[in-house]
Design a binder for these strands. Structure first.
Lengths: 203, 203
DNA sequence: CGAGAGACTGTTTAAACTTACAGCACAACA
DNA sequence: TGTTGTGCTGTAAGTTTAAACAGTCTCTCG
């Protein structure tokens, strides 16, 4: 497995981000000189060595001797997460069913991944069984937002409501009961907020 | 308004298609020499003159003096249709609000365009006000499918049910009444079927 | 304190790339 | 019958890019 992007330095992450933006906006990666212009480098070698570092860490692929020979290692699509096993991080690669080619900035704030919804507990919010929820990773949420939460190693999608130390996770379907969590006694992890939805059939 | 892509020659359409595929697969446009290799040209000027022709017809934009300075004029995304004026075709360019960059094959059968839904008449089918419906153009439909129909110059999204010459367009919300159309007396155009849905916020 | 990693400056060279010029063959067309 | 548009070959600059080499400065870590 290639090294994770978490091991990138702050500067390297900036460079990688600029490359992503350029591909998005212009349909092609930047040259070394364009990187210099964007970051104020006076030497193309500053860009070159950053690219080498990113390639060594597996974030990009460099093609030798080609103009704009930078390829993003990670496909342009969003990871689609299916069932999440107990105790493991939601974006662990064994949970990623596939990648869907769509623009993360289709949603605002941007989507980090898609999560397949199981069951009808959010039916009245227009979220049906099998729908894909676009999720933005974020741990601080406001009341009324629809969140992806982990309670007792169970990942669930519900409306968030906090009253002091007690958090209620509300379904949008009278057939289901709210989940009540006392955060002084039980662990509650907020994985992110819902920023959109995709349904892949006509029902 | 730039000339339409319909005015491209067959060869020019092939070239344009190859450019699209290259951007898709490699994240950057091809060079003149790569076009030569792909089509068997022996002269880079063959590619050059095709590119000039495509640029003249508005299909691409050429940036002078830049390696891989080819930009696709039309984004690869799906057209998003907003409100549809009476009497004009649904994909008329004045209805296209924007283009969303997402893969048409995300849906099956493939989506031809996106239509913004107004109102809550399909609420219980999980289709809310402001949602974008992915539509596949198709005039023959089966009972139970959700269709985009045009009745009396009004474009609407409903569940389709036919009984002989009478078609019922059923809402999915008890607050709304079915639309009943006698096809012997009134015109009814089926614009397409719903093949998916996109919601761009977290509610 | 010394070593190494990260983040650069500055310079050079070869290869990749664009783009101009000068043609040829063929079909459509008026 | 000539003219125009399309689709090419072939060659040759001249510019853009990639990528090498040689350094500087500043952290952090053992």
């Amino acid at each position: 497995m290639p090294p994770r992007s978490e091991s990138l330095t702050a500067r390297q992450a900036e460079i990688l981000d600029f490359i992503r933006q350029t591909v998005e906006a212009e349909g092609r990666p930047p040259t070394r000189l364009e990187l210099c212009a964007a970051f104020g480098f006076r030497s193309p070698n500053a860009a070159e060595s950053h690219l080498r570092a990113l390639a060594a860490k597996g974030a990009i692929l460099l093609e030798e001797g080609r103009a704009r020979g930078i390829r993003l290692a990670e496909g342009p699509g969003l990871p689609l997460v299916g069932r999440v096993a107990a105790g493991s991080p939601i974006l662990a690669s064994e949970h990623v069913e596939s990648r869907l080619q769509l623009d993360p900035t289709l949603f605002s704030p941007r989507a980090d991944y898609l999560l397949r919804v199981r069951g009808m507990s959010m039916r009245d919010a227009g979220i049906l069984d099998g729908d894909l929820i676009a999720v933005h990773r974020q741990s601080e949420v406001r009341n009324g937002q629809i969140v992806v939460a982990r309670v007792h190693d169970d990942v669930t999608v519900k409306t968030f409501r906090r009253s002091g130390p007690v958090v209620e996770l509300l379904p949008a379907n009278p057939d289901f009961e709210p989940i009540v969590v006392d955060t002084r006694a039980e662990p509650l992890d907020i994985e992110g907020i819902m920023v959109g939805l995709i349904r892949q059939d006509g029902h």
